[in-house]
């Protein structure tokens, strides 16, 4: 019992969560579907003029990824909370801070990464200028971890609530605003041939800060729920 490797427990938990996210009842497939459908609504609602679509493209994709992330977050801890496996996790050698970190990472890999991977396809549907593609993917890669991590705080705070989804939205969306501003800023800078790096750096900074704060806050909230 003495030489338990914390890192292998950590990776096991990530693997387990990814598997669950992609199995029946998991949120990953649905999130991807939501992302596809919601983005295609924009040309239909706003009109198919190429120049308008090109103008709103980066912002639309960022906003919809944000909403897609939000949609999948309410089950981040709740599924485990409801069937009792969160209690079992509390007896693993990982601290709760590491447990929520592992779950946020798994959420990002299982749910957000696929969204990022198909985003160029949707950017093409929105007629986004060629200059923006690389930066769109890059900014999403750098910025979206903040969405999973900050979102984990909201998911942890609402874990015991039966209809926590709405409250989760209210809590988390305001905290997403910085990531959205800087992420979209980077893509638009790339399109307008100015320097996207400052925006990208700020996007990364938000991700780093959320990486530090979120595990502490989420773990405290989970502890509250497990009482």
């Amino acid at each position: 019992m003495t030489n338990i490797s914390v890192s292998s427990v950590f990776w096991s938990l990530i693997k387990r969560d990814i598997k669950l996210a992609w199995s029946q009842g998991g949120a990953a497939g649905m999130t991807l579907g939501f992302f596809l459908i919601a983005v295609t609504l924009f040309p239909l609602g706003i009109g198919p003029e190429a120049s308008t679509l090109a103008r709103i493209g980066p912002g639309t994709i960022w906003v919809i990824s944000l909403l897609a992330c939000l949609l999948s977050l309410d089950r981040l801890f709740q599924a485990d909370f409801e069937d009792g496996s969160l209690d079992d996790l509390a007896f693993s050698p990982l601290s709760l801070e590491l447990i929520v970190t592992a779950k946020a990472i798994a959420h990002w890999i299982a749910t957000i990464l696929p969204v990022i991977l198909i985003s160029p396809l949707l950017a093409a549907l929105l007629n986004m200028p060629n200059l923006g593609y690389k930066m769109l993917i890059l900014s999403l890669l750098i910025g979206t971890p903040a969405l999973s991590f900050v979102g984990s705080i909201g998911a942890a705070l609402t874990v015991a609530l039966r209809r926590g989804g709405v409250l989760l939205t209210l809590l988390v969306l305001p905290l997403y605003i910085p990531t959205l501003i800087f992420g979209v800023g980077a893509v638009e800078a790339a399109i307008s041939l100015t320097d996207p790096f400052p925006h990208l750096a700020l996007t990364g900074a938000v991700s780093m800060i959320s990486l530090i704060i979120s595990p502490l806050a989420s773990a405290a909230a989970i502890r509250l729920a497990l009482e």
Partner: peptide, 15 residues
């Protein structure tokens, strides 16, 4: 519980 949960959010918001 409500108060402590709200407190966690308040502290996060200090950023």
């Amino acid at each position: 519980t409500a108060g402590r949960a709200a407190s966690i959010l308040a502290l996060v918001g200090v950023v």
